[in-house]
């Protein structure tokens, strides 16, 4: 089963239609996604700013991480649950959205950055825990995180707009390729 066929099957389920057409559930899920963003991206930003030496300068990085990461993880879990529900409400269109696809790529990069930070940088935290000016690799990880989460927010917001939707043709060949549009051949 192709991913598109899977999304079409999701689209055909009653719950997907119900969520999409619900007067309150869809806005509630969307609003929860935004409130969780305040917590998740908010605290990720605080940690990144600390890595860059721009806030909480007298607080050891390990303390910031230890106290804020549980909240950050909780926020991320809410973001994923509500995000999956938002996808489930409008599966085919979202699957074929170039912004959704860009968002997933940025999410993977942000995940790699987190993995890199925790396996390569955080393990040697004792060397720079109290440093006002953290090592360059640490600052780079913080900056990359800031840029990637900003890109994820922007791409996510853009999913709502239909400029590049598959059902609006003609689109450039690049858009049709990137969005995975199935474009019918022009009838003679």
């Amino acid at each position: 089963m192709s991913l598109l066929a899977f999304c079409e099957w999701l689209d055909s389920t009653d719950w997907s239609t119900a969520l999409h057409e619900s007067m309150f559930m869809y806005p509630i899920v969307e609003s929860t996604h935004v409130v969780a963003l305040m917590l998740f991206v908010g605290f990720a930003t605080i940690l990144d700013l600390r890595l860059l030496g721009l806030t909480l300068k007298r607080v050891p990085v390990s303390q910031v991480a230890e106290r804020l990461l549980p909240w950050t993880v909780a926020g991320f879990i809410i973001m994923v649950i509500t995000g999956v529900l938002l996808f489930y409400a409008i599966p085919v269109r979202t699957y074929q959205s170039i912004f959704f696809r860009a968002k997933l790529i940025f999410l993977i990069l942000a995940g790699l950055n987190v993995w890199f930070f925790h396996t390569r940088i955080f393990t040697r935290i004792a060397e720079w825990d109290l440093a006002l000016i953290t090592p360059k690799a640490v600052r780079m990880a913080g900056l990359a995180s800031l840029v990637l989460w900003a890109a994820i927010i922007i791409a996510g917001r853009m999913i709502a707009y239909n400029w590049f939707d598959c059902d609006i043709q003609p689109q450039s060949a690049f858009v049709n390729w990137a969005a995975g549009c199935v474009v019918p051949l022009p009838t003679p």
Partner: peptide, 24 residues
């Protein structure tokens, strides 16, 4: 929305602390 994330983080940092949570 980017402003909201920044506002959210900096406000919640202090509010959670007022509740005895976070960076306690």
């Amino acid at each position: 929305l980017l402003g909201l994330a920044l506002l959210g983080g900096s406000v919640l940092l202090v509010d959670l602390r007022l509740l005895g949570l976070g960076l306690k």
